[in-house]
Design a protein around this nucleic acid. Structure first.
Lengths: 133, 133
DNA sequence: CCTTTTCTCTACAATTTTAGTATACATTAC
DNA sequence: GTAATGTATACTAAAATTGTAGAGAAAAGG
C-alpha cells in the first residue's frame, strides 16, 4: 500500500517549484531534491504532460508550476505518476476475472472500488499549500 | 497504491472460511478461490501466525477462522500480509533520510504519516461481514 | 547562423519486489 | 504405520520499479 518513489519525488519536486519564483531548471530541482537529474527530468515530463507544470526550452529555460498550490492536491500528483487509484489489481479494466460471472455484482470488486474512491477523495483534500510550514 | 495479490487472495480466503462451517482443508480453499494450493498454504501460514486463522494438522485437518467476521477488518488482513500501512518508503523506520536534519519535523513525513493512519482507519471500519451479500 | 543551454523522446539496464514452486519434514486420525 | 493433512525454508520466474544513456529539438544570445 505504497506510492512509488517516483510519485514521492514528484511531490517534492512540485514543492520546490512552489517555493521558487520564476522558471527553475531541472538541474536546480535535482540539487534541491536529491533526485538524479535524469530521473527528475523523466518525472517532470510526466508532470508536464498532465499540465501540472510547464516547460520552457533553451538557455535560461526550466519548469514552472501551472496550477495554483492551493488547488493542486496530492491525489493529482500521485495519480499523474502512478496512474489511477485502484487498490486491487482486479479493478483494472484490462483484468479479466474468471471467478465471477458479472464483474459489476462482485462484492470484492465493489468494496475495493469504494475504498479506492475514498482514498482518492482523502488525498484530493490535501493541497500543496499544506506543505508550507 | 495497491495491495499485493497475496493480500487480495487473503481476503478471499478468509471469506471462504467465513462462509464454510467447521475446518476447511487448504485444498478446498484453493479450489474455491482459484489460488494455487502452494500459494494458498503460504498465505494461510501468515494468517495463522497472526492469529487470524487456526490450523489443524493431520488427516481431516484444515483451517478455521479464529476471529469473529464482524470484528475482523480489511485492515487487519491486509496488514497481516503486506505489513504496516506506510504510503511512502520514507516512513519506514529503517529508512535513513539524508535530506533532513530531524525526521520528526519533516513536513512530508508528517503528512504521509497522517494519510497512512487515516487509510488504516478507513480500512479498519470495513469488517468481513460487509462481504456477505 | 552558430553555439550553448536547456528540455524531449525512446530505448535500455540494473535492482527490487512480487508471485509462485519445490523439497523435506512434522503432526494427527484412523 | 500409513495416509492425509499442515510447516518451514529455500529456491525460481516474472514483473515492476528505479534508474541511465544517447540522439535530437527548441530557444536565447551573440
Amino acid at each position: 500500500m505504497k506510492i512509488t518513489r517516483e510519485a514521492d519525488y514528484a511531490v517534492r519536486i512540485v514543492y520546490v517549484l512552489m517555493c521558487s519564483p520564476g522558471v527553475v531548471p531541472a538541474s536546480e530541482i535535482s540539487e534541491k531534491t536529491g533526485v538524479t537529474l535524469r530521473f527528475a527530468l523523466k518525472i517532470l515530463r510526466k508532470l508536464s504532460a498532465q499540465g501540472i507544470v510547464t516547460a520552457q526550452k533553451g538557455a535560461a529555460g526550466g519548469y514552472r508550476l501551472l496550477r495554483s498550490p492551493d488547488e493542486l492536491s496530492l491525489a493529482q500528483i500521485i495519480e499523474c505518476i502512478d496512474g489511477p487509484f485502484e487498490i486491487s489489481h482486479c479493478l483494472n479494466g484490462e483484468f479479466d476475472c474468471t471467478r465471477v460471472a458479472n464483474k459489476e455484482t462482485c462484492r470484492f470488486r465493489q468494496i475495493f472500488d469504494e475504498v479506492s474512491t475514498k482514498l482518492r477523495t482523502e488525498l484530493d483534500q490535501i493541497k500543496m499549500t499544506s506543505f508550507k510550514n
